[in-house]
Nucleic acid binder design. Structure first.
Lengths: 334, 334
DNA sequence: CTGTTAGCGCCTTCAG
DNA sequence: CTGAAGGCGCTAACAG
């Protein structure tokens, strides 16, 4: 099937292609009523669809943004993506989604590729491993916004949870319920992933604020495969923690598996709070107390910020970190 | 920042732009060793990135495919998307993800838009509401593959679960465990979404095969908000079902909520099997027996098929429905 | 109000 | 082995 172009339409309607172009761009003012109809007619008859690639080349804008997430399989990513997609859709923007898998090389590859594809901007869950690249984009004033994580000294607007607060309200709740020996487990911290670091620090702070001692044995940040083992160690202590805060949905699941296997009763033997409001929290036995992130608001904000930047609104970046409020959802696990 | 183009590189390296183009396309054969190095050098120094949009315009191929899902928030979609992304990534293809929300109009809009953007092919979770459009794509030989659902009489390769089998093995298992009054709930069937229809029909078949009567009161397909009510009705029957098959992860969650609220014991008071292996199945109390879909294989196959078609391999389509095997994962809810 | 004329950045013959 | 020229489909002045 022959791709039909603007020239075909022009011929068919007996006008020049520039007139058709005008029509396509809804600049009807400078065009005879009748001419307009003829063009409309021609387009319909030929089933013409403008070639956006050609237009993009000319206009240097693709109405597309790239989204690079760590892993689309995480609930958080999925929800943020959905929110981004929704708000982009309103503005007729499209999104190209990529998984960097927390791998800086893959991230770099994607950034280069997406830019080569001329996407108008990028929303990134940064690995943190490409400082030079981030810096270059900043200096070129290329529109970028970070989500979930920020990168020290890289002035890119970052949409983040107020991690300190998230941890604080959880600890607070533990304390109010009478728990004193409180532990926390997060996923590995090696690459200094912001939320994990902040949550860990926030945890220690919160302990201090409540006049509780910081017990190193109660605090672990581990690779997924080691969580099970680490938990075992922690619970085998002479004086094991009475309560544990799970740093994210993944850790929570691991704990739950362990707890099930060893028939540990929640919250009787062990109280539990998880950061991320997992889908099954409300109907688990017992229903799980969680700290929820406003994922949709975050995704929406990220998209709005980026679109603003793309549209040239020189966003005054007094502070470029946008913190979102976590919310404690009290159920029965603590 | 000035976008730097092939011309800049050519000048910088003292060659003509066509030579640079040769280089970019790795046609080194016709080029002096030294010339090559000079170009390489120039590219590096200038930080040149070819403009893929321009290339796409010329080559009529964007190395991008569109993926239109019903809703990215469903686990099934997410996993399939991930698999698609992975296999596309290997071939240096990118994916543009869109949510049609089961709305034919939105679906049409996206298909048009994506095609205008010259994506090389489309993977669609079809709403079924755009027959003419589907037909047109087929007749134009535009590469498309369907996932999860097929559309009657539209010869587009469709990646689907063997829904009959999925239901059958579940019913079989119920029967083996001694259950005779078996019910099933699916989400609404109004738009004839293939999997739901097939699962419902399969359910009746399976009942028959096991010499069990088909009790209409035990079979419901409802809108999400009505599931709760429907379930209540079903369980209030003089002779309520002893076992229920949940048509998908969403229905399962609704049932679980209800069960929790009314303190119904599983499997004692009610046995349960869910289609879709939800994330919490293994550590729920009791662990949930499920029928798992091979989501990754399905996504992978979809991408492979599409890429094949794009690469012009005239796939012989003796049968264009690809069925994937469901797997019963026996745990304790039945 | 409509048509002509240049490009956008790249690829691809086809001479030299 | 290299350079000049034309064109992909569309937009945007600028003339008529």
């Amino acid at each position: 099937m022959k791709a039909i172009t603007i020239v075909d339409v022009a011929k068919h309607a007996n006008v020049s292609k520039s007139t058709v172009s005008q029509y396509l761009n809804k600049r009807y003012e400078h065009m005879g009523e009748e001419t307009r109809k003829r063009i409309e007619q021609a387009i319909k008859e030929l089933g013409y669809q403008p070639n956006i690639v050609a237009r993009s080349l000319k206009q240097k804008s693709t109405s597309t943004i790239g989204v690079i997430v760590a892993n689309i399989l995480h609930t958080f990513s999925t929800q943020v993506i959905r929110a981004i997609e929704d708000t982009c859709h309103e503005k007729d923007f499209h999104i190209i989604v990529c998984n960097a898998d927390d791998d800086p090389d893959k991230e770099k590859k994607y950034i280069d590729m997406l830019r080569a594809k001329q996407v108008d901007g990028l929303i990134i869950f940064p690995t943190g491993g490409n400082r030079e690249l981030y810096e270059r984009m900043v200096s070129e004033k290329y529109p970028v916004v970070f989500v979930d994580r920020s990168v020290p000294e890289i002035p890119v607007p970052s949409i983040m949870l107020d991690n300190y607060k998230a941890v604080k309200i959880a600890v607070q709740h533990f304390v109010e319920q009478g728990y004193e020996r409180i532990g926390m487990i997060t996923t590995s911290i090696i690459r200094n992933v912001t939320p994990r670091v902040e949550r860990l620090n926030g945890f220690k702070n919160a302990l201090l604020e409540n006049n509780l001692p910081i017990v190193q044995d109660y605090i672990k940040s581990l690779d997924p495969q080691q969580i099970r083992e680490g938990l075992k160690e922690m619970l085998s202590l002479k004086e094991p923690p009475q309560a544990i805060l799970a740093g994210n949905d993944f850790v929570l699941a691991e704990i739950l598996k362990y707890v099930k296997e060893y028939q540990i009763r929640i919250p009787l033997d062990l109280a539990l709070i998880g950061i991320d409001d997992v889908s099954y929290a409300s109907f688990y036995s017992p229903p799980l107390t969680t700290v929820a992130q406003p994922t949709f608001e975050m995704g929406k904000k990220a998209a709005e910020l980026l679109l603003q930047k793309i549209q040239g609104a020189d966003v005054k970046e007094e502070s470029y970190i946008y913190r979102f409020e976590p919310k404690l959802i009290v159920r029965d696990s603590c």
